[in-house]
Nucleic acid binder design. Sequence first.
DNA 1: ATAATATATGACTGGATAATCATGTTTGAA
DNA 2: TTCAAACATGATTATCCAGTCATATATTAT
Lengths: 309, 309
Amino acid sequence: MFEKLFAERGLSLDRLRVLVEVHDAGSIAQAAPGDLIRQSQYSRQLREISEFFGCEVARRQGKLLKLSARGARLAELARAQLRALEDFRSECREESIDYTIAAGDSLIHWFVIPKLGALVSEFGDKARFVTVNLRTNEIVQQLCDGRVDFGVIRKDALAGGLKSASLGALAYAGVVPSALFGGPARAAKQKIGLVDVLGGALPLAAQMADGQFTQRLREVAAKAGVEMRPALVCQSFPQTLAAVRSGGFAAVLPAIALRDMERGSFVEANAPELGKLKRDLVLAWNPRTEQVRPNARKLADRLRTALKL
Amino acid sequence: MFEKLFAERGLSLDRLRVLVEVHDAGSIAQAAPGDLIRQSQYSRQLREISEFFGCEVARRQGKLLKLSARGARLAELARAQLRALEDFRSECREESIDYTIAAGDSLIHWFVIPKLGALVSEFGDKARFVTVNLRTNEIVQQLCDGRVDFGVIRKDALAGGLKSASLGALAYAGVVPSALFGGPARAAKQKIGLVDVLGGALPLAAQMADGQFTQRLREVAAKAGVEMRPALVCQSFPQTLAAVRSGGFAAVLPAIALRDMERGSFVEANAPELGKLKRDLVLAWNPRTEQVRPNARKLADRLRTALKL
DNA sequence: ATAATATATGACTGGATAATCATGTTTGAA
DNA sequence: TTCAAACATGATTATCCAGTCATATATTAT
């Protein structure tokens, strides 16, 4: 058995690993930045793999070496195999197995991490969780090729071939710090609307890293008859929250972020217009992960209930 | 990625291969019969694998070294991985991929091989078929651990975890050569029953390698009030058929075997009692095979229709 | 054209693993 | 107890593969 595979030399676990690394990085140079030695090694090993399999695993695209379709498929196969071996070893040594959960910054912050506590105790030493901040399209990409195990993404970003479970809708809220509004006393009495938050009367902090969100928020503002002119542009919602906490800025934040703020320190706007920003979230994973990694199916089950909004 | 896996030495594709070989053979000595050199090598490599994974992959059971439960699991994992790599290579080189179909001797003979012709043309150079004669319990075992891809077995022998598709029932028929009965003329006119075949008036050839079948046939004979006294004991139905063809023996054969005989050269008994011997057949395969081998799902689909009785 | 970046290759070294042989140990049976 | 079969291990060699460095080639931007 496997005579053909071993009759010829040219295959090794190291070389398969190199293929995976190059696939992830996108090219040799990115896989080993600044390291001429490893670059030459990678180049050679990819050629040796190509010779062994009898087909072009990679092709030059301009300056860069990109994996061919076949090469990418082999890389995914190799990744699954190496991961299965690594998992098996962890199991044998009773070490914990790392599962990777990818999501946008704010979801990781207010959504994933707070709810992971319960799971950690349930899986004990068997599983460990690694969170990674990625943009939606990167999450989908990395779920498909097996780099991450689970992702929390918008339902409309789901790609074919991924399994998913609905987690509910993510809502947004407009908030103004009590200090900025006239102190807790007034804040308790008076109601505010979206125009008070976005209208420009108060300094606004806005997360503008997510183009799609920013676009939608602008549309909502336009419909309300105001133009959004942020006094502070932030890279993420956690940063935006920090701005609000400082007392100096109003902002639109994910509703779940409000739990982090002291009651009475802010006023939430009565802004049904923000309903347009609502997005359905799903937990997504690659069905292959269930085949390759132990407990992945069970973990998916637990995650879908634990993360439900 | 995979730092843990490559930080330590001790893992190699060769060693995984050895694990698979030993798993299949059952022990080191059986894996390398008479070859002291390979035996010592296998022993060492199994130890190295154990060290790498940090758990006992094999344990001595009496004189022989048997894989532990973990070792067997790793062997199955390794087999699937090596096979996937081999298949990938075959695909790259546009070589055909071998699929193994296991069944009992007579099923291979009259059931699988005759119907495989149509499939061969459909899959062209992509797939090749390898048939293997095995006993039912071996088929189930080897389907489970991935040594064979497909099996044709009795429905009642199915093991958990295997997928299956019903192929219909295998019936048996009692036959007497015309020569033995009194020539074609008489054969055409007169009807015979089970007692004529089994009763002892005519020399009987009986397949007795399959204990379960023999037992049932004895019961049927007893119910008909006769005792079966074969004049010739055969190892398989194809052999039994040869006996009938010689003109010297009556026999009970699978109904499908009659196609191989010239019309008029024999008389088929009118023996509804043989209905008791009917057995439902299924095509069985391991769902993992669908994941690991390309086209396996499609092939299963084609096989289930092509093999249907 | 030229420089900068990325990849490819030749030549050599070092390290890991496989192959070999001799010999030692465990185990079941005579 | 003794023998034989099966496995284990120590020591050595051969092979393959990874690592290293120098240098060549390809590609893009200027």
